[in-house]
Write a protein that binds this DNA or RNA. Structure first.
Lengths: 338, 338
DNA sequence: CTGAAAGCGCTAACAA
DNA sequence: TTGTTAGCGCTTTCAG
């Protein structure tokens, strides 16, 4: 790999000049620019980004730490985050923690402030303590779509109104006449998706419908989790006419369980999820869900992070995503007659 | 962020000594180690990985360039690649090109040899010319699971026997008595998945079954692509009893199309895919497919890359993945009687 | 066992 | 407009 000084030597100038043409500060005479560019072409020179980062005190790289790249929510998030970052001239480094908080911690400690100018943390079970400890470094850290907002005002984060999402789901089922309803709640690294459940329950209560603990299943946030929960629910409560899942992935699993037992969706049982991942559109019947607006969340999160990097005094440091919206597809319908 | 010299000052030693205890060359007196470690703890020091990389001439970071993080194959690949890399003390930087070769090129040019010690390229439509141009840098580049192996021996790559995968699928359908078969072929960035189709066709030919062009659909490698292709196939060839898809994602789409039309799988039509992504297990009916062994491919690929980084003379430079294997699930069955 | 000093490749004042 | 000169934070001989 050719270096700056080789290029400089070949062009008969100094490294400073080459550096200047490289990032075209308009301070170089056209003729010299010409010479330098020829030398660059001739040597096949590429800047060493590490050296540049060290000199500039800025790597133009941000890290995205997430728990499980196989959960389709994250790839969808990554895709937009990467695009936004690229447009703002940052590299995005995706770090998968395999659901292990210790790996998340390790990434954070190693990367924040050294490899990356900032890091965006998604539901990785990293404690607020860890985050606070790291705040001493100047590298901004932002958490996205936290369920629990006990982070305080001093940690930048993006908040999604999960409670409202649950509420919307509840209102939809209520409007369709359902009264015997089950709920499948995911347990991610951040703990139960309790905000969504609370919202759901409160909506039902307004309609005079109860949601006893017996019809709630807490399971892992996966297809298999949703499947098993649905099986258990059906076994113990064959009379339910609708199931609320705190996310789409589990709803997909639940739909498999229903299909396996010959139960029709939505004629026999209605199914509603939260998030609106691509899969919700692709599955059959297509899933009615409460869209969290992945694109929005990702965009707001990464932009907040980059804003904070470029201007540490940036305000606000806590941003709210617009409320979720109901997307009606084919998995919900009027309560069955019997 | 504290630096080495601050730690050194606090411990009353020089940076060289701190550096030595940091990576425990056994050359430091226990008492000094003690002092230094206290200073490290007191300052909350973390090494600046950029500076280290510059000094060592090695970043311990590898990049994984892939076309579409939303295609579930890639997250599955990423997960194991990341794990292997981590165990070998490398960071994995995932670069999504959004299916745009120019972005892939840009990543390659910017990252290879500067930010990353090596890069693993997956089906991103980057030309062999580009790769060759980059070979001048010392940074190893390995391509994984190339369909076309016209890369020559001088570019390290991992090759999957796609032809065999197609053959296995063909033999399976043949054994079930199918003779009127359609095929859905994906067109990724690397061009049509023609190896798989060739293998499939040649297996059928051995069994005396033809696969005319009329029953082949070339579509994009997505759920929607598979769906549309299946619709078109059914419309023009209602007599077919089996469909071969060159990958699982399209098979999933095809299954939706069949479900939409009330066609039962496998009673009316058998469906077989290639790859064995998680979705193949999750969908209903579960998909019969030819498993490429994602875990194996990923492991071999990343290990080859790291081997090459650590020892540029490493041999072999081209590694073959063990042959694919048939995984029979519920989407294939005997040909229907009529 | 520890320190002094050079240098990785680049940027950024400041001079010339 | 260009060159000189310091670093950025770390590793790594080579002396002491």
């Amino acid at each position: 790999m050719a270096t700056l000084s080789e290029v400089a030597r070949l062009a008969g100038v100094t490294t400073a000049t080459v550096s200047n043409v490289l990032r075209n500060t308009q301070k170089v005479k056209p003729a010299t620019v010409q010479k330098v560019q020829e030398a660059i072409a001739a040597t096949g020179y590429r800047p060493n980004l590490m050296a540049r980062a060290l000199a500039e005190g800025k790597s133009s790289m941000v890290a995205l730490v997430l728990p499980d790249i196989n959960n389709p929510f994250y790839p969808e998030f990554v895709r937009v985050a990467e695009r936004v970052a690229r447009h703002r001239n940052y590299f995005l480094m995706v770090c998968n923690t395999d659901e292990r908080p210790d790996i998340g911690r390790a990434y954070l400690h190693q990367i924040a402030g050294t490899l990356a100018d900032g890091v965006l943390v998604l539901h990785t079970g990293i404690s607020a303590d860890d985050i606070n400890e790291l705040k001493t470094r100047r590298s901004p850290i932002v958490l996205a779509s936290e369920e629990k907002v006990d982070l305080g005002d001093n940690i930048p984060h993006v908040v999604v109104n999960f409670h409202r999402a649950g509420e919307i789901a509840g209102q939809h089922l209520l409007a369709l006449g359902h009264t015997r309803i089950g709920a499948i709640v995911g347990c991610g690294l951040e703990g139960m998706q309790v905000g969504r459940l609370d919202g759901f329950r409160s909506a039902l209560e307004v309609g005079g419908v109860a949601l006893p603990d017996a019809v709630i299943r807490n399971v892992s946030d996966t297809v298999a989790g949703g499947h098993d929960a649905a099986v258990s629910l059906l076994e113990q409560h064959p009379d339910i006419t609708a199931i609320f899942c705190t996310n789409d992935l589990m709803a997909y699993g639940a739909s498999q369980a229903l299909a396996d037992q010959g139960i029709r969706i939505p004629q026999d049982i209605s199914l509603i999820g939260v998030t609106d991942i691509q899969m919700a559109r692709d599955m059959r019947p297509a899933l009615t869900t409460v869209a969290l607006g992945i694109e929005q969340v990702a965009t707001l999160s990464i932009n907040l992070l980059l804003d904070l990097i470029e201007n540490p005094a940036h305000q606000p440091t806590i941003v709210r995503v617009p409320d979720p919206v109901l997307v009606v597809r084919s998995s919900t319908g009027p309560v069955r007659s019997i």
